[in-house]
Design a protein around this nucleic acid. Structure first.
Length: 473
DNA sequence: TGAAATGTTGGGGCG
DNA sequence: ACGCCCCAACATTTC
């Protein structure tokens, strides 16, 4: 029997078998060597954070199971590694699903041309975006700068997203003796943070599917209003799976659309649209992570205050809603979306610390840390993005708590030391009369910090500071 | 995908 | 019956 030609399937951020265009293409008539390369050629600033490495570790474990233990692992420069494999094995074809970080686009381009010159066939596919970032443009060819027209005129009016592909019925897989072991990749942290945080997640392609089904049933029908309630589970929590590709956005989009046509479904789909918008911004602004989209922010006098930054990172600001969010992040690798806006606004506006600090902390601690989404969202919060929150939009963490966590379940879950306070003072314990604090066994400054800034004063100071930017625009 | 200040309206108590 | 005040509820404006 004639054996099939050998193809390398290079896995990157598409760690799944279902709806996988690259895999689907070679599955039929190739023998496949599935490989993952931990790339250290990427810029220092874009190296994976601790949470991402942890997620990747689990993902590769799961994937190797799905691939009958045939996933081969490497560590180093992808071009060198691919070239080395090709000298040893009769590889004719290399396939992958595209990544969209600027440095990856440049890297892959170079790999493609180098290997093609060596007589290898290279095929790349879109496995992680609903629309290619270079295809969604205004009629004059320039990129959109605002989300709403981007989504309505750019995305919804374009061809609908590709339909999903089934997992290959049968794969002819092969391994590589030179493969490293998973522990060689050294992806788990030295500190003991990983075990507790992992208890909140099952990390596999199958679990991504379960999460999706659960959300479609339990969350989607209530999404529009429910998504604002951090104590409840009406958000999808799919972001980390989407980042690593245990799910494709196409799978999510189509199943949501199949549920019918109402404001909840539309709203959820538009959130996938925000993801597309972030990737579009990154594609057209490769320095999104470091450069303010609005350059008038370049000279802004950010505060420098290590104590404040540490208090924010560790959930010790004395503002319950902020601290609850930051503790949720530390303990679960996740933070509810509404609370992300609250803690972001607090860091950038009330503490007036540079948004880079927030971007970096989220990058290190969020399981869904994603170059495009993280950068675009922090620029949004800081007000320096293309379609950003206006400078005067400053969240009041007390009002936000009362509005969206009225029962106080979320704050009590993450700040048990305040649990006995009545709802009336749960979000602003510094306003509570002495006897109320006594009854709740709360001694501010001992059991829970006094606020590190005065919300009213810091808000006014921020308004003044940010309003001054206008003069230079 | 704000918040706070300011403005407007309308109902009810009361002289 | 009427005007006046108070105030809550809602709307508008401003940062």
């Amino acid at each position: 029997m004639q054996s099939k030609p050998l193809a390398i399937y290079w896995l990157r951020q598409d760690l799944r078998l279902t709806d996988n265009p690259a895999l689907h293409t070679v599955a039929q008539d190739h023998q496949i060597l599935p490989i993952y390369i931990l790339d250290y050629t990427n810029p220092k600033s874009d190296q994976m954070g601790s949470a991402s490495r942890l997620w990747l570790n689990r993902s590769l474990l799961d994937l190797d199971n799905s691939l009958d233990g045939k996933l081969s692992l490497y560590h180093g420069n992808p071009l060198t590694i691919l070239q080395e494999i090709i000298t040893r094995l009769p590889v004719k074809t290399v396939v992958w699903n595209r990544c969209y970080e600027p440095w990856r686009i440049a890297r892959d381009k170079q790999i493609k041309s180098t290997l093609e010159n060596a007589g290898i066939t290279i095929k790349s596919f879109n496995g992680s975006l609903l629309w290619e970032p270079w295809q969604v443009n205004k009629t004059d060819g320039s990129p959109y700068k605002r989300f709403t027209p981007f989504y309505r005129k750019g995305c919804l009016a374009a061809d609908p997203p590709r339909n999903i592909l089934p997992a290959p019925a049968k794969l002819e897989l092969t391994g590589d003796q030179a493969s490293l072991t998973l522990s060689d990749l050294n992806l788990t942290p030295k500190i003991g943070w990983d075990q507790p945080v992992l208890k909140h997640w099952v990390i596999s392609e199958a679990d991504a599917q379960d999460k999706l089904s659960e959300f479609i049933k339990q969350g989607l029908p209530y999404y529009k209003g429910g998504r604002d309630l951090p104590a409840k589970r009406y958000t999808s929590q799919l972001a980390p799976y989407l980042h690593f590709g245990q799910l494709s956005p196409n799978q999510v989009w189509h199943i949501a659309r199949q549920q019918g046509d109402d404001r909840h479904i539309d709203h959820f789909c538009s959130e996938l649209g925000w993801r597309e918008f972030s990737y579009n911004l990154l594609f057209h602004n490769p320095d999104l992570r470091t450069q303010n989209l609005q350059s008038k922010f370049d000279d802004f006098a950010w505060e420098e205050n290590t104590d404040h930054l540490k208090a924010w990172q560790h959930g010790q600001t004395g503002i319950p809603m902020v601290d609850a969010g930051m503790r949720e992040l530390w303990h679960t690798g996740y933070m509810h979306n509404r609370v992300r806006m609250i803690v972001g606004s607090f860091l950038v506006k009330n503490l007036r610390l540079h948004w880079h600090h927030g971007e970096q902390w989220f990058w290190d601690t969020l399981f869904d840390a994603d170059h495009a989404n993280n950068s675009a969202s922090w620029q949004w919060v800081a007000g320096c993005g293309a379609d950003a929150a206006p400078y005067f939009r400053i969240f009041n963490p007390v009002t936000q708590g009362q509005k969206f966590d009225g029962e106080g379940h979320y704050v009590r879950r993450w700040i048990p030391e305040l649990a006995a306070l009545p709802n009336q003072y749960l979000f602003n314990p510094w306003d509570a009369p002495a006897d109320v604090l006594n009854d709740a066994k709360v001694h501010l400054g001992r059991d829970y910090p006094m606020p590190i800034v005065d919300l009213k004063k810091s808000r006014e100071a921020a308004l003044t500071a940010f309003a001054n930017l206008k003069a230079y625009s």
